[in-house]
Protein backbone atom coordinates (compact mmCIF):
# COMPACT_ATOMS: atom_id res chain seq x y z
CA UNK A 1 0.00 0.00 0.00
CA UNK A 2 3.08 2.23 0.28
CA UNK A 3 2.78 3.73 -3.14
CA UNK A 4 -0.69 5.04 -2.39
CA UNK A 5 0.40 7.00 0.67
CA UNK A 6 1.41 10.17 -1.21
CA UNK A 7 -2.03 10.19 -2.76
CA UNK A 8 -3.95 10.60 0.48
CA UNK A 9 -3.76 14.38 1.15
CA UNK A 10 -4.80 15.18 -2.41
CA UNK A 11 -7.62 12.67 -2.43
CA UNK A 12 -8.78 14.11 0.89
CA UNK A 13 -8.72 17.69 -0.43
CA UNK A 14 -10.56 16.68 -3.60
CA UNK A 15 -13.08 14.73 -1.54
CA UNK A 16 -13.71 17.75 0.68
CA UNK A 17 -14.34 19.97 -2.35
CA UNK A 18 -16.79 17.45 -3.77
CA UNK A 19 -18.56 17.12 -0.38
CA UNK A 20 -18.75 20.91 -0.14
CA UNK A 21 -20.26 21.02 -3.62
CA UNK A 22 -22.84 18.32 -2.87
CA UNK A 23 -23.95 19.79 0.47
CA UNK A 24 -23.44 23.43 -0.54
CA UNK A 25 -26.99 24.65 0.15
CA UNK A 26 -26.76 23.47 3.78
CA UNK A 27 -23.32 25.01 4.29
CA UNK A 28 -23.93 28.53 2.98
CA UNK A 29 -24.23 30.92 5.94
CA UNK A 30 -26.81 33.14 4.20
CA UNK A 31 -29.35 32.94 1.42
CA UNK A 32 -27.24 33.34 -1.74
CA UNK A 33 -30.16 34.84 -3.65
CA UNK A 34 -31.50 37.28 -1.02
CA UNK A 35 -31.14 40.79 -2.39
CA UNK A 36 -30.81 43.87 -0.21
CA UNK A 37 -29.73 46.92 -2.17
CA UNK A 38 -28.93 48.86 1.01
CA UNK A 39 -26.12 46.33 1.55
CA UNK A 40 -24.77 46.48 -2.01
CA UNK A 41 -21.04 46.22 -2.70
CA UNK A 42 -19.92 46.06 0.92
CA UNK A 43 -16.26 45.13 1.27
CA UNK A 44 -15.46 42.00 3.29
CA UNK A 45 -16.22 42.43 7.00
CA UNK A 46 -17.23 40.29 9.97
CA UNK A 47 -20.82 39.83 8.70
CA UNK A 48 -20.15 39.25 5.02
CA UNK A 49 -16.78 37.52 5.17
CA UNK A 50 -16.18 37.97 1.43
CA UNK A 51 -18.27 41.14 0.99
CA UNK A 52 -21.47 41.60 -0.99
CA UNK A 53 -22.19 42.00 -4.69
CA UNK A 54 -24.11 44.77 -6.39
CA UNK A 55 -27.47 43.42 -5.28
CA UNK A 56 -26.28 43.11 -1.68
CA UNK A 57 -26.04 39.31 -1.91
CA UNK A 58 -23.47 37.60 0.31
CA UNK A 59 -20.49 36.65 -1.88
CA UNK A 60 -19.29 33.84 0.40
CA UNK A 61 -22.69 32.14 0.30
CA UNK A 62 -22.79 32.55 -3.47
CA UNK A 63 -19.32 31.06 -3.87
CA UNK A 64 -20.30 28.09 -1.69
CA UNK A 65 -23.57 27.47 -3.52
CA UNK A 66 -21.78 28.12 -6.81
CA UNK A 67 -19.54 25.13 -6.14
CA UNK A 68 -22.58 22.95 -6.63
CA UNK A 69 -23.23 24.16 -10.16
CA UNK A 70 -19.60 24.35 -11.26
CA UNK A 71 -18.13 21.26 -9.57
CA UNK A 72 -21.12 18.92 -9.82
CA UNK A 73 -21.81 19.80 -13.47
CA UNK A 74 -18.14 19.34 -14.32
CA UNK A 75 -18.07 15.96 -12.58
CA UNK A 76 -21.25 14.76 -14.28
CA UNK A 77 -19.97 15.99 -17.60
CA UNK A 78 -16.65 14.24 -17.08
CA UNK A 79 -18.33 10.96 -16.14
CA UNK A 80 -20.66 11.15 -19.16
CA UNK A 81 -17.80 11.91 -21.56
CA UNK A 82 -15.52 9.25 -20.13
CA UNK A 83 -18.13 6.49 -20.07
CA UNK A 84 -19.54 7.27 -23.51
CA UNK A 85 -16.13 7.76 -25.13
CA UNK A 86 -14.61 4.66 -23.54
CA UNK A 87 -17.51 2.33 -24.35
CA UNK A 88 -17.62 3.51 -27.97
CA UNK A 89 -13.84 3.28 -28.28
CA UNK A 90 -13.68 -0.15 -26.64
CA UNK A 91 -16.42 -1.46 -28.93
CA UNK A 92 -14.51 -0.17 -31.96
CA UNK A 93 -11.38 -1.90 -30.75
CA UNK A 94 -13.21 -5.18 -30.11
CA UNK A 95 -15.34 -5.34 -33.23
CA UNK A 96 -13.10 -3.57 -35.74
CA UNK A 97 -14.50 -3.45 -39.26
CA UNK A 98 -16.88 -0.82 -40.54
CA UNK A 99 -17.99 0.48 -37.13
CA UNK A 100 -14.36 1.11 -36.23
CA UNK A 101 -13.63 2.91 -39.50
CA UNK A 102 -16.67 5.16 -39.30
CA UNK A 103 -16.19 6.13 -35.66
CA UNK A 104 -12.48 6.77 -36.08
CA UNK A 105 -13.00 8.97 -39.15
CA UNK A 106 -15.70 10.82 -37.24
CA UNK A 107 -13.35 11.35 -34.31
CA UNK A 108 -10.69 12.66 -36.73
CA UNK A 109 -13.14 15.37 -37.72
CA UNK A 110 -14.02 16.31 -34.14
CA UNK A 111 -10.35 16.42 -33.17
CA UNK A 112 -9.68 18.82 -36.05
CA UNK A 113 -11.66 21.58 -34.31
CA UNK A 114 -10.08 23.85 -31.72
CA UNK A 115 -11.91 22.63 -28.60
CA UNK A 116 -13.19 25.90 -27.18
CA UNK A 117 -14.10 27.32 -30.60
CA UNK A 118 -16.35 24.33 -31.20
CA UNK A 119 -17.71 24.39 -27.65
CA UNK A 120 -18.60 28.09 -27.87
CA UNK A 121 -20.43 27.64 -31.16
CA UNK A 122 -22.14 24.42 -30.09
CA UNK A 123 -23.21 25.85 -26.72
CA UNK A 124 -24.74 28.86 -28.46
CA UNK A 125 -26.66 26.68 -30.89
CA UNK A 126 -27.83 24.12 -28.34
CA UNK A 127 -28.81 26.78 -25.79
CA UNK A 128 -30.42 25.77 -22.51
CA UNK A 129 -27.92 27.22 -20.06
CA UNK A 130 -25.42 25.07 -18.19
CA UNK A 131 -26.84 21.80 -19.55
CA UNK A 132 -26.34 23.04 -23.10
CA UNK A 133 -22.80 24.13 -22.31
CA UNK A 134 -22.10 20.70 -20.82
CA UNK A 135 -23.59 19.00 -23.91
CA UNK A 136 -21.31 21.09 -26.12
CA UNK A 137 -18.25 20.00 -24.14
CA UNK A 138 -19.29 16.32 -24.23
CA UNK A 139 -19.77 16.57 -27.98
CA UNK A 140 -16.23 17.82 -28.55
CA UNK A 141 -14.36 15.78 -25.94
CA UNK A 142 -15.67 12.19 -26.28
CA UNK A 143 -13.31 11.33 -29.20
CA UNK A 144 -10.24 11.70 -26.96
CA UNK A 145 -11.56 8.93 -24.72
CA UNK A 146 -12.72 6.82 -27.64
CA UNK A 147 -9.22 6.96 -29.11
CA UNK A 148 -7.61 6.09 -25.82
CA UNK A 149 -9.96 3.19 -25.04
CA UNK A 150 -9.64 1.80 -28.56
CA UNK A 151 -5.86 1.87 -28.35
CA UNK A 152 -5.93 0.12 -24.98
CA UNK A 153 -8.31 -2.56 -26.23
CA UNK A 154 -6.10 -3.23 -29.23
CA UNK A 155 -3.21 -3.98 -26.90
CA UNK A 156 -5.19 -6.52 -24.86
CA UNK A 157 -7.37 -7.94 -27.62
CA UNK A 158 -5.26 -10.99 -28.26
CA UNK A 159 -4.60 -11.74 -24.60
CA UNK A 160 -5.30 -15.37 -23.68
CA UNK A 161 -8.08 -14.51 -21.21
CA UNK A 162 -10.06 -12.74 -23.91
CA UNK A 163 -9.55 -15.64 -26.30
CA UNK A 164 -10.75 -17.94 -23.56
CA UNK A 165 -13.84 -15.82 -22.90
CA UNK A 166 -14.62 -15.75 -26.61
CA UNK A 167 -14.20 -19.51 -27.00
CA UNK A 168 -16.39 -20.17 -24.01
CA UNK A 169 -19.17 -18.42 -25.88
CA UNK A 170 -19.33 -15.00 -24.19
CA UNK A 171 -21.12 -12.33 -26.20
CA UNK A 172 -19.41 -9.08 -27.17
CA UNK A 173 -21.39 -7.31 -24.50
CA UNK A 174 -20.26 -9.74 -21.80
CA UNK A 175 -16.67 -9.54 -22.95
CA UNK A 176 -16.81 -5.74 -22.97
CA UNK A 177 -18.31 -5.34 -19.51
CA UNK A 178 -16.81 -8.38 -17.73
CA UNK A 179 -13.30 -8.44 -19.10
CA UNK A 180 -12.35 -5.40 -21.14
CA UNK A 181 -13.55 -2.27 -19.32
CA UNK A 182 -12.06 -3.37 -16.01
CA UNK A 183 -8.69 -3.93 -17.57
CA UNK A 184 -8.48 -0.63 -19.42
CA UNK A 185 -9.98 1.47 -16.61
CA UNK A 186 -6.69 2.52 -15.00
CA UNK A 187 -5.22 4.73 -17.74
CA UNK A 188 -8.68 6.07 -18.60
CA UNK A 189 -9.33 7.13 -15.01
CA UNK A 190 -5.95 8.84 -14.83
CA UNK A 191 -6.70 10.73 -18.04
CA UNK A 192 -10.12 11.70 -16.73
CA UNK A 193 -8.69 12.91 -13.43
CA UNK A 194 -6.10 15.01 -15.26
CA UNK A 195 -8.88 16.41 -17.42
CA UNK A 196 -11.22 17.51 -14.62
CA UNK A 197 -9.40 20.79 -13.97
CA UNK A 198 -9.58 21.74 -17.63
CA UNK A 199 -13.26 20.88 -17.77
CA UNK A 200 -14.02 23.08 -14.75
CA UNK A 201 -12.21 25.97 -16.45
CA UNK A 202 -13.93 25.41 -19.79
CA UNK A 203 -17.40 25.15 -18.31
CA UNK A 204 -16.84 28.27 -16.19
CA UNK A 205 -15.44 29.95 -19.30
CA UNK A 206 -18.62 29.23 -21.24
CA UNK A 207 -20.68 30.64 -18.37
CA UNK A 208 -18.37 33.66 -18.30
CA UNK A 209 -19.27 34.30 -21.95
CA UNK A 210 -22.96 34.02 -21.13
CA UNK A 211 -23.29 30.56 -22.72
CA UNK A 212 -23.72 28.52 -19.56
CA UNK A 213 -25.38 29.27 -16.24
CA UNK A 214 -27.70 32.26 -16.45
CA UNK A 215 -28.19 35.01 -13.85
CA UNK A 216 -29.21 35.01 -11.07
CA UNK A 217 -27.64 31.52 -10.75
CA UNK A 218 -24.62 31.54 -8.47
CA UNK A 219 -22.08 30.01 -10.84
CA UNK A 220 -18.41 30.97 -10.55
CA UNK A 221 -17.82 31.93 -14.19
CA UNK A 222 -21.08 33.88 -14.43
CA UNK A 223 -20.37 35.65 -11.11
CA UNK A 224 -17.01 36.82 -12.43
CA UNK A 225 -18.55 37.98 -15.67
CA UNK A 226 -21.17 40.02 -13.80
CA UNK A 227 -18.52 41.54 -11.56
CA UNK A 228 -16.27 42.64 -14.42
CA UNK A 229 -17.46 46.24 -14.56
CA UNK A 230 -16.85 46.64 -10.82
CA UNK A 231 -13.23 45.56 -10.85
CA UNK A 232 -12.03 49.00 -9.81
CA UNK A 233 -14.52 49.51 -6.99
CA UNK A 234 -15.39 46.03 -5.72
CA UNK A 235 -12.65 43.57 -6.71
CA UNK A 236 -13.81 41.00 -4.11
CA UNK A 237 -16.83 40.20 -6.27
CA UNK A 238 -14.40 38.78 -8.88
CA UNK A 239 -11.57 37.58 -6.67
CA UNK A 240 -13.72 35.26 -4.53
CA UNK A 241 -15.15 33.09 -7.34
CA UNK A 242 -11.84 33.36 -9.22
CA UNK A 243 -9.92 31.95 -6.27
CA UNK A 244 -12.59 29.26 -5.85
CA UNK A 245 -12.02 28.11 -9.45
CA UNK A 246 -8.26 28.31 -9.04
CA UNK A 247 -8.17 26.30 -5.80
CA UNK A 248 -10.48 23.55 -7.08
CA UNK A 249 -8.65 23.25 -10.39
CA UNK A 250 -5.30 23.20 -8.57
CA UNK A 251 -6.45 20.46 -6.19
CA UNK A 252 -7.85 18.27 -8.99
CA UNK A 253 -4.73 18.84 -11.10
CA UNK A 254 -2.49 17.79 -8.21
CA UNK A 255 -4.61 14.71 -7.63
CA UNK A 256 -4.41 13.89 -11.33
CA UNK A 257 -0.63 14.24 -11.32
CA UNK A 258 -0.34 11.98 -8.28
CA UNK A 259 -2.69 9.40 -9.76
CA UNK A 260 -0.57 9.33 -12.88
CA UNK A 261 2.57 8.83 -10.81
CA UNK A 262 0.95 5.91 -9.00
CA UNK A 263 -0.80 4.13 -11.87
CA UNK A 264 1.31 5.09 -14.82
CA UNK A 265 4.90 5.28 -13.58
CA UNK A 266 7.33 5.95 -16.38
Amino acid sequence: MGRYRGLFPYALAAGLIILLAVFAPYLAPMDPYAQDLSLALRPPDSVNLLGTDRYGRDVLSRVIVGSQITICSSLLLLVATTVFGSVVGALCGLRGGRLDTIVMRLSDVFLAFPEMVFAIAAASVIGGGIAGAAMALILISWPKYARLARGLVLTIRSMPYLEAARMSGSSDREILFDHVLGNIAGPILVTAALNLGTIIMELAGLSFLGLGAMPPAAEWGAMMSNGRSMIQTAPWVILAPGMAIFVSVAVFNMLGDKLRDVFDPK
Binding site: M201, F208, M224, I231, I245, F246, V249, A250, N253
Partner: peptide
Protein backbone atom coordinates in the same frame (compact mmCIF):
# COMPACT_ATOMS: atom_id res chain seq x y z
CA UNK B 1 4.06 26.78 -13.79
CA UNK B 2 1.59 24.73 -11.78
CA UNK B 3 -0.22 27.89 -10.66
CA UNK B 4 -0.32 29.26 -14.21
CA UNK B 5 -1.72 25.96 -15.42
CA UNK B 6 -4.57 25.99 -12.87
CA UNK B 7 -5.94 29.45 -13.64
CA UNK B 8 -8.61 30.00 -16.27
CA UNK B 9 -7.67 32.73 -18.75
CA UNK B 10 -10.54 35.01 -17.77
CA UNK B 11 -9.30 35.03 -14.18
CA UNK B 12 -5.74 35.79 -15.33
CA UNK B 13 -7.12 38.59 -17.50
CA UNK B 14 -9.04 40.17 -14.63
CA UNK B 15 -6.08 39.81 -12.26
CA UNK B 16 -3.81 41.53 -14.78
CA UNK B 17 -6.32 44.34 -15.19
CA UNK B 18 -6.62 44.68 -11.42
CA UNK B 19 -2.91 44.73 -10.65
CA UNK B 20 -1.30 46.25 -13.74
CA UNK B 21 -3.98 48.78 -14.63
CA UNK B 22 -6.09 49.55 -11.56
Amino acid sequence: SFVGNSMPNFFVALLLIYFLAV
